[in-house]
Design a protein around this nucleic acid. Structure first.
Length: 212
DNA sequence: ATCCCGAGGG
DNA sequence: CCCTCTGGAT
């Protein structure tokens, strides 16, 4: 079975497992999703969801965060880790959205990645989930790990993994690919001890890089 | 390649 | 103790 056929079969089985995947991060508009996704770097989404309500209670919109005291923002997002960088980047992003983009979160990859602290992964999440735009596939730690284990890529670099995955799937499914691999990664194929014995993808999986 | 960095699990 | 959590900038 070639890689493309395997890739499609993996999609089909995960689609069956996750008929309507619920979003992992809490958000109600593009800005909130952008903020939540930035905070999600090297942090569980569960913790992000505890922080964002406090953050948006203090600074409800882009304009207010653009005027915020960075130290106060840092204090609120402290528990998510990398808190100084995250606070500084979020304020600077809010500023740039006000100054350059008329107060609206931009809707293209090219514009989104000009925001400090926003690269392809975060941009892809915002584009696909908030705007229904699929310019690429968001490659995070879960997608990276599963794509490699499943033999859908031989690369480690997220940008190369994204280029390997894109031709395997129709564009309109690119958002689902991220959701499926993230959820399945958490539930069945975590970094430490993958549960290959009870995995419904086991017969499709070369188990690249999986320790015995 | 290295740094940023807290919190929870094993 | 070590590893991992929906990364990004230098």
């Amino acid at each position: 079975m070639n890689t493309k056929h395997r890739a499609r079969e993996i999609y089909a089985r995960l689609k069956r497992r996750y008929p309507a995947p619920a979003p992992a991060l809490d958000w109600s508009d593009a800005w909130e999703l952008l903020v939540a996704t930035v905070l999600a770097a090297q942090c569980t989404d569960e913790r992000v969801n505890k922080v964002t309500p406090v953050l948006f209670a203090h600074w409800p919109d882009i304009a207010s965060l653009a005027e915020a005291d960075v130290a106060e923002v840092a204090d609120v997002v402290r528990s998510t880790g990398f808190f100084r960088n995250k606070a500084k980047n979020l304020k600077a992003s809010a500023n740039r959205i006000i100054e350059v983009y008329g107060g609206e979160v931009p809707r293209t990859m090219a514009d989104l990645i000009t925001l400090p602290g926003v690269a392809r992964k975060t941009a892809n999440i915002v584009l696909s989930n908030a705007f229904g735009v699929f310019e690429g596939i968001a490659v995070d730690t879960h997608v990276k790990r599963l794509a490699f284990r499943l033999g859908l890529t031989k690369n480690i670099d997220p940008v190369r993994i994204e280029k390997d995955l894109m031709p395997l799937y129709p564009r309109e499914t690119w958002g689902e690919i991220n959701h499926f691999l993230v959820y399945f990664g958490r539930e069945v194929c975590p970094a430490r001890s993958p549960r290959c014995g009870s995995c419904e993808l086991d017969d499709l999986c070369p188990k690249h890089g999986v320790k015995a």
